[in-house]
Each structure stands twice: as C-alpha cells, then as structure tokens.
C-alpha cells in the first residue's frame, strides 16, 4: 500500500466512522437514560435523510415552486440542517410519547420496550415505503462537491465536512453532558432513575431532551450521508443502524466518548479489512474484531461495570 492510498483509506475510515459515531450517539444517550435499546434509531437516521431531502429540494426550488427570495447556497445549507434537525427531533420525541412513555408508565418490563422499538423501526421503514413508494430518490447537490488533490492524495470537501461536523458534535455533546444541569440530570438518571425526581428534576423533560439530542444528531448523520452518497431508499437505515448500535456497544453504551470511539473503530476496521481481504470478507472480519474487543472488555472500551449498590 502506498502512502497516498493509505491516507485515502484513513480518510474513508474517518468518514464512515463519523456516520457510525453520529448514529451511535443516539443509541448511547437513550440507553443511558432509559436503559432502552432504541432499535428504531437507525430508521430515525433514514427519516432524517428523507426530511433533509424534502427540505433541501424545496429550498433549492426544485418543485417548480420558487421562493420569493433567492437564498444563498450557505443559507440553504444552514436552513436544511436546522429544519431537518428540528423535524427529526420532533419525530423522535413523538415516538417516545406515543410508543415508549405509555409503556413506561405502566411499568412493563424492558423487554417489551425493546420489542416495541423494533416494531416502531419497521413501521417507519414500511410507512415510508407505502407513502413514498419503492423508487429511490436522488439527494440534490446541497453542498457542491469539490475535489482536492494534495501530493497524490485525492479527497473531496464532503469527507472533510463530515469529519469536522462529527468532531464538533462530539465537543458539543460532551459539553452538554458534563457542564450543564441537564447533562448532569442525564448522568444522574443513568445511575439511579428513582432518586432523580427526589431532586426536583422532571425526569420526563430530561428524557424528551435526550430524544431531541439523539434524533437531531441522527438527522445530521442523515444529511451528511445523503450528501456523500446521494441515493435514498427506505431501508437505508437498517444495516447502518445495526452497525452503529454495535459501535455504541463496543465503545461502551451510555457514554458519549464510547459512541465516538466505537464508531471510528468500526469505520477503520471495515475499511482496512477491505484493503487486505476480498470485499466479501469485510463484514465477517470486521465484526469478528468487534466481537474480540467485547470479549476482552465486555462493557466496551469506555464502559464501566455498574457497581451493584447496597
């Protein structure tokens, strides 16, 4: 492998790692506060990509309908991100309200919640299929692609954007969780949910905030993914979602750092396995490696075994 190809692979690994990391964050945060594996989360990513598709096409005037003002490219990008994040967060919160909260109120076992999450995911996929049909959609060129070539290494601006955005999201969430009172409440809930209302903290509000954060990060992932690979279909969230979930577990579920680390580890293993072995081996070996990590560290890289309290 020449150095330029190596660097190219690193770029690809960082890009895919970013997608996994952004989605893994949502799995991880929801698990942290609810101990719920929200299997609908991969499909929230898909929903985010579609919402981003409709909003950007609309703003770019591709519906034969022109906005009264001409929007600059930067403004279109900004508005697409903002509106998509808000609407996707709305979807995430609605799912929490309609599907999870009533069950939680009844105090049902967590197994039912996980099964419900799986069903919600299937509903989102098939709802999309029924409403929009099986045809694939082409995401508009929201961010015009620019190719750079530095010392024989070729890469596009979108890759760089994906990686930078992911790092910004990481810093943002880490600040929220470690420095704000809401983040403190999230951490407290993950340790002992029963004691949290005793502090005067409205637990449901914190849960809603967690879904807002998780879903809007999935929306960011959805747009960035669609910008990089501009073909949308209803099942696009399924496999990526599963992989992101595994990334969250490998990193240590419930931990922001863990989701990021797990995402990048998965990205690197996938890309570099494919450079050495035939591509049909990629997932087999990549997941073998992840399984090995989990065998060595069952709680994930940043996860800590929860001490049982007296």
């Amino acid at each position: 492998m020449t150095l330029s190809i190596f660097i190219q692979n690193v770029m690809n690994a960082l890009q895919w790692g970013s997608f996994y990391a952004l989605i893994a964050l949502g799995y991880s945060m929801v698990y942290g506060v609810l101990l719920l594996i929200n299997f609908a989360h991969g499909d929230i990513f898909m929903v985010g990509a579609y919402i981003g598709f409709f909003i950007s096409t609309f703003l770019l005037g591709a519906y034969g309908f022109q906005l009264p003002w001409k929007l600059s490219g930067g403004l279109v990008i900004f508005l697409t991100f903002l509106l998509t994040m808000a609407l996707t967060a709305g979807v995430g919160v609605a799912i929490e309200r309609v599907a999870y909260r009533p069950l939680r109120r009844k105090g049902v076992s967590r197994l039912y919640l996980v099964i419900t999450a799986l069903m919600v995911g299937l509903l989102l996929e098939n709802g999309n299929l029924a409403l929009l049909g099986a045809s694939r959609r082409n995401f508009p060129e929201l961010i015009p692609k620019v190719l750079y070539s530095v010392g024989g290494v070729n890469f596009s601006n979108t890759k760089i954007i994906v990686i930078i955005v992911t790092l910004l999201v990481f810093v943002f969430l880490q600040t929220v969780v470690l420095k704000t009172k809401w983040g403190m409440a999230m951490r407290a809930i993950s340790y002992d949910r029963m004691a949290v209302p005793l502090m005067g903290v409205p637990v449901d509000t914190i849960i809603v905030m967690t879904f807002v954060l998780g879903s809007s990060m999935a929306a960011v992932a959805g747009i960035l993914f669609a910008v990089s690979y501009p073909v949308l279909e209803p099942y696009m969230g399924a496999l990526v979602g599963w992989k992101a979930f595994i990334a969250a577990v490998v990193g240590g579920i419930g931990e922001i750092r863990g989701a990021i680390a797990g995402g990048f580890i998965l990205g690197f293993t996938e890309i570099f396995v494919a450079t050495v072995f035939p591509s049909t081996f990629r997932d087999l070996i990549a997941f073998g490696v992840l399984l090995l990590i989990l065998t060595l560290r069952p709680n994930g890289i940043f996860g800590i075994a929860r001490r049982t309290k007296v």
Binding site: K181, M184, A188, A195, M199, V310
Partner: peptide
C-alpha cells in the same frame, strides 16, 4: 430514601448541585 441512593457517578458537589436543580 432508604439505602441513601446518592449518585455515585457524580461528584459530591454535583450531587448537591442537582439537588438545587429547581
């Protein structure tokens, strides 16, 4: 509460801060 139920993953100071949440 019975059994204390302090937040072990937070610092002592954070335990007090979260109690001042409202």
């Amino acid at each position: 509460p019975e059994g204390r139920r302090i937040f072990g993953n937070l610092t002592v100071w954070e335990n007090l801060k979260i109690a001042a949440y409202a």
